[in-house]
Design a protein around this nucleic acid. Sequence first.
DNA 1: CAATAAACGCGAATTATTTGCAATAATATC
DNA 2: GATATTATTGCAAATAATTCGCGTTTATTG
Lengths: 151, 151
Amino acid sequence: MVGTPDFAQMLRRCGGRATPGRLRLMRALWKETAPVTAARLQKSLGGALNLATLYRALDALAEDGVVRRVDFRHGHAHYELAAPARAHHHHLACTGCGAVEDVACTLRPRLKRTSAFSTITDHAMEYFGLCKACGARGPERGGRIWTGAGE
Amino acid sequence: MVGTPDFAQMLRRCGGRATPGRLRLMRALWKETAPVTAARLQKSLGGALNLATLYRALDALAEDGVVRRVDFRHGHAHYELAAPARAHHHHLACTGCGAVEDVACTLRPRLKRTSAFSTITDHAMEYFGLCKACGARGPERGGRIWTGAGE
DNA sequence: CAATAAACGCGAATTATTTGCAATAATATC
DNA sequence: GATATTATTGCAAATAATTCGCGTTTATTG
Ligand SMILES: [Mn+2]
Ligand SMILES: [Mn+2]
Ligand SMILES: [Zn+2]
Ligand SMILES: [Zn+2]
């Protein structure tokens, strides 16, 4: 992971097309140092992509695990590059100024002193998976069963 | 924590008023077994509270830490009773059917086999706190500094 | 009981995100 | 390289969750 990853190949491997728009999107995400909003991303792309298109691309990429959606409790989503471009990790967000610091995922986060943060006032941790019933039902073709509609 | 907590006192201790609406809200939350949406909560209250009022109450309560906002990646928030009524914990949510299971917070979550779930496909973990700059600045009267407006 | 500020309902406004649809362009095939 | 197939795109309109303004009610305090 020395130079820039081959995004074109990465996109195609996920069953997508390497369009100029998505390539720019990947490169823009690659440069980011912290999760960004769709709106900010669009600006950073010089408005190259329509916002609706951008959301669609991000959704597709998140679906494939190439992009990770992050919730900082701001009322909107943030996105960042995930595997295989970037190693799995978590975040520490400042509720005061919005500063974000990466945190390694030890799955044993007895957070030690961190350089840029003084206090940890709260944390969120949610696990996602399949209950036995759904797991037994097998990977229903197409994935997602429960859409969340109405709840 | 044998019987029902004294919600009236709990509300007043947080600088709020023990209105019939908020008392019913607390009792409704107390009965819930998993985080619920504002809309669902309103129904469970028989529409006793206006949705806007409900959101205002939930915000205030979350502010005081009495209520915890949970993100299950459904595009809307879920709420549940927190301290001192309920012990701190986390969740395991089924992306298939939406089933939710509580997970103890060991801060060392090497998730062992759990009863109702077969697989854990993903998890989210975000920490919140204050960076050194904000921490040094002290608890600005009123709390929140960064509103997230515009980002 | 009167004063004060919190809480309420209602309707309108915001915001993030999604969708329908017709036009384009990337990939696979020939 | 030309062609068929299908994903992607832009744009405008639609949703859905959450918030706000404001005039009215009511809990709390003394
Ligand atoms: Mn990160
Ligand atoms: Mn719970
Ligand atoms: Zn800060
Ligand atoms: Zn399930």
